[in-house]
Design a protein around this nucleic acid. Structure first.
Lengths: 221, 221
DNA sequence: GCGATCTCTCAGCGTTTCCTCAGCCGGCGG
DNA sequence: CCGCCGGCTGAGGAAACGCTGAGAGATCGC
């Protein structure tokens, strides 16, 4: 079952990288090492791996960057991020950006293996290039938005807001959550969110975003 | 964000359990203690916790056993296992059986807290998407409720009440218990509960919630 | 430097929601 | 038969919630 599972490990702490490699090899994986972001990215892009273990803090380009770039290049190899800190935002951001899982250092080796196995087992869900919810379409790469076929112009904030709502349209998204992810500020007033929901509604149509009183908003197109 | 995070700690080493409790309380969690597997299981099953810290070696039933039983009962509260030995296999077994994370004793308290936070944050274990009791369906993520197929609109309080009743539909739920869990207030009047049961009944149908005189309510759909 | 654009704060408004109060109903025990 | 207790519900005021117009800084291009 593990025959021919190829894993790329990108971490600049060479001792740690080595020991991860040794451990994974003992588990039957074929493991390649890389020690900086740029090289890691190139290798991940062409290397045909089954999984990538990626440190966030890296020389060259950081982990988020590498994942974003890979996903933009249509490389959907499962990525497990290694994070030195355990602040909430970096983890959430990593997952947002297209990583599949994460671990906080220091981590247990057994857990690492379990996570990798789970990740590989689980069918990779390539994110579609453009988001579509009902009559709404949003292409993150070109920043173009169409509502019911016709193009609308959104400012940066408006777009970020709509994109987040569309990425999570299957559930109700709370205002504080939006504040966290779209405004990445802490002590702000949720009224900004309301104001911007208003702006977006005026541009894409009132019905595209429904208010769920006491809970938040939901994109329905 | 930590407001109202309830944690159950099950460990037969009372000194250790106490000190974990003290530490977690200082971190802003509400913590209950239990010292053997059987009691721990019962409490975990009914207690509506946000996370469970569970020793593997326990009198009564062991940790694996408890997790397995909980998962079988459809309780998906995140579980962190505490293992005394650090052979790898027992840990892997624990994760296989449905635990979310584990720590080997002795562990650092900071790590424990970080793991708990991570566990609670991430929807690791698949919680079944919708609750269903008789003709009632409730989807917590979209906050949608259907009674006999047709959608009904509930306010925040009404929804919380119905959700609690549905999550515990196999037994009668007392008014004071509802006051505790749905209103998280102390010295309130149970009349609020009666009032809201009335509201919900009007919306989802009179028969969905039966009154058990002198005892409380029960969701039957 | 100056206007245009964008972002965010503030205050006010109408509406919904929440909770309290008080009266009502109905079963049950005396 | 009557009174009591537990449960139910209509009414209404207070508070919370969500939306929006106005406008002040900030930023950017010209």
């Amino acid at each position: 079952m593990l025959a021919d599972m190829r894993i790329l490990v990108v971490d600049d702490e060479r001792t740690l990288a080595r020991s991860i490699q040794r451990g994974l090899v003992a588990e039957g994986f074929a493991v390649d090492l890389e020690h900086d972001g740029t090289a890691g990215y190139e290798r991940a892009r062409w290397g045909d791996y089954d999984a990538i273990v990626l440190d966030i803090m890296l020389p060259g380009r950081n982990g988020y960057d590498v994942v974003t770039a890979l996903r933009a290049e249509d490389v959907w190899t499962p990525v497990l991020l290694l994070s030195a800190k355990d602040g909430e935002h970096d983890v959430a951001d990593g997952l947002d950006v297209g990583a599949d899982d994460y671990l906080t250092k220091p981590f247990s080796f057994v857990v690492l293996v379990a996570r990798i196995r789970a990740m590989v087992r689980r069918p990779a869900t390539p994110r579609p290039a453009v988001l579509a919810v009902g009559a709404l379409e949003l292409d993150p790469s070109t920043r173009q938005v169409r509502a019911g076929g016709l193009a609308v112009d959104l400012t940066v904030r408006e777009l970020a807001l709509l994109e987040y709502l569309m990425r999570h349209h299957e559930r109700v998204v709370g205002k504080v959550e939006l504040l966290d992810h779209v405004w990445d500020g802490e002590g702000e007033d949720v009224n900004v969110v309301e104001q911007y929901v208003g702006y977006v509604r005026r541009k894409v149509g009132r019905a595209a975003i429904v208010t769920v009183r006491g809970a938040g908003y939901r994109a329905v197109g």
